[in-house]
Nucleic acid binder design. Sequence first.
DNA 1: TTGCAAAATTTGCATTTACAATGTTTATGC
DNA 2: GCATAAACATTGTAAATGCAAATTTTGCAA
Lengths: 150, 150
Amino acid sequence: MKMPYRFTSSFPYLLNRVGVRMGELFSRKLAAHDLTLPMYRVMAVLRQEGAQRLSDLSAMVTVEISTLSRLVTAMKRKGLVSRVRPEDNGRTVRIDLTKAGEKLVDDLMPIAAHFEEVGIKTFSHNEVAWLKNALKQIHDNLQDLDRTIP
Amino acid sequence: MKMPYRFTSSFPYLLNRVGVRMGELFSRKLAAHDLTLPMYRVMAVLRQEGAQRLSDLSAMVTVEISTLSRLVTAMKRKGLVSRVRPEDNGRTVRIDLTKAGEKLVDDLMPIAAHFEEVGIKTFSHNEVAWLKNALKQIHDNLQDLDRTIP
DNA sequence: TTGCAAAATTTGCATTTACAATGTTTATGC
DNA sequence: GCATAAACATTGTAAATGCAAATTTTGCAA
């Protein structure tokens, strides 16, 4: 038999709910360092991928590019990142972590990892791997739709 | 062997990414009705659960209560919800869908369901059920932490 | 019953965000 | 080689958000 549609059992609802919760928990820790969650995400991506153009960073962090532009301004003021226009292509901009930013994000990542750990502690290694892969897959499915019907 | 920590393979990252994407897609549809995603979520919860107090609604929709207060004001202005103070407890407030709000959310839910469908189309029924349950479980794990260490 | 704490919501205010418009720099067609 | 388009990034502006403070109503103890 077909189940009736339940909003609170829908994927977007469950997704948003756990995402917001996890974000809140971590944000409290970040506040002690005078940081926001988007700032952390930017630093974490830069740490992993190295210097990025603004638009690429925007895609990786899933934050609107104009928002990111201002965010980077604030982070630069804090001495966390550098922003330079490369000589070979002056319309782009190259964002990178400073030493201080690197140090800070290295301190914070274990805390983020801890919250992740708490969330997934009731799952096996394989289950977590499957789950993460599913999230990746679903994202791709939605991206495909986005390309098909703009 | 232990894998190095990869931010872009972390659960919070994958979660946020797919959540934002799905939200964006649906938001575009909502814009045609002059609605925002939080507004839809409020309506969907009210549709499923019936009238709610503001604080309960806040918990269900995972939106900050002061934000919700203003959101409800805007929705009331649009004629989507009613807001009354019950006689038996004048410090609470009772939010409920109007007929118009009910009609609107009934029209929108299939669209939301469609995007969900697109996202999870590559998974079996059982897999989706497992996935949703996992998200619920993880949320609970985090809630427990929240209660343990405030 | 009166006064005080708790519960629930609202508001003040500063920050963040999104969309559109604008500004630069590079690439392309003729 | 020059005009024009395309690619990237920034800024103007209005709306959304979050925290703290204020407000209103209820519950409780003396």
